[in-house]
Amino acid sequence: MVKAEKVWKSFGKLDVLKGIDFVVYPRQTFVLLGPSGGGKSTLLRCINHLEIIDAGRLWVDGELMGYREKGSALHEMKPRDVSRQRAKIGMVFQRFNLFPHMTAIENVMEAPVRVKGVDRRVAEAEAELLLTQVGLQEKLDVYPAQLSGGQQQRVAIARALAMKPKLMLFDEPTSALDPEVVSEVLDVMKRLAREGTTMVVVTHEIGFAKEVADGVALMDGGVIVEHGPPNEVLVNPKEERTKAFLSKVLA
């Protein structure tokens, strides 16, 4: 579903990603761990072309992201085509980024109605169902400012799911939450993983990774330091940097 090949990204002189390779197959959950500044979030943002990579290739669902290959030349895609590609990829942000001028249900309906042209009534019914599934059936008509962080993040997940994405990206979805509401968001994510949603998750929640990840990778200094199934990487890490990171996170 996602394939990265020698992905390289720099901000000015700073190399943030230095040749990342990985593959995520459909229905898998791939968890990116690692210290802050290691490039995890940047990699995630490159997947849906919010950041543009400087070298390498990124494919989602068999399509090269942001470019069209004609012969040996790469052509930049038009904004409209990039939007079409992004519509297939859901993204959940650390700071929720809900639209504050729309109620919960309006947030969820917006993209299906405006981007896909789904009939309002159909979109409304679907949005109601999605918000019910994340436990917010009582909060449909409430503006984001009246919701707790955990509730906002669950609306954000429902909003992303409303586009029926083939891939879901989670960028530290619980890092901005109060400790007591982290589990309500993780529970929703675990359910999605078990239902077979293809997911790439950047997180510090080792427990989540152990429970549902099909593969984990530890990123530091712009490279993947170690990767493999969670019960190997997280239980018997081979690399010193992985051990150091895990001992800090689990301390």
């Binding site: 849906n48 919010l50 904004p79 409209r80 939007s83 079409r84 992004r86 519509a87 297939k88 990829i89 859901g90 993204m91 942000f93 700071r95 980024n97 809900l98 639209f99 504050p100 001028h101 917006e110 993209a111 405006r114 981007v115 954000a156 909003r159 992303a160 586009m163 990206l169």
Partner: peptide, 27 residues
């Protein structure tokens, strides 16, 4: 308007024009 708003709209597949009209300008 916070940059995250445009990013959230973009990640939902909204075009730059639609994002401006529906998300950025109302705020």
């Amino acid at each position: 308007v916070e940059r995250g708003q445009a990013e959230a709209a973009a990640s939902l597949g909204m075009s730059p024009g639609l994002t401006m009209r529906r998300i950025i300008l109302p705020q």
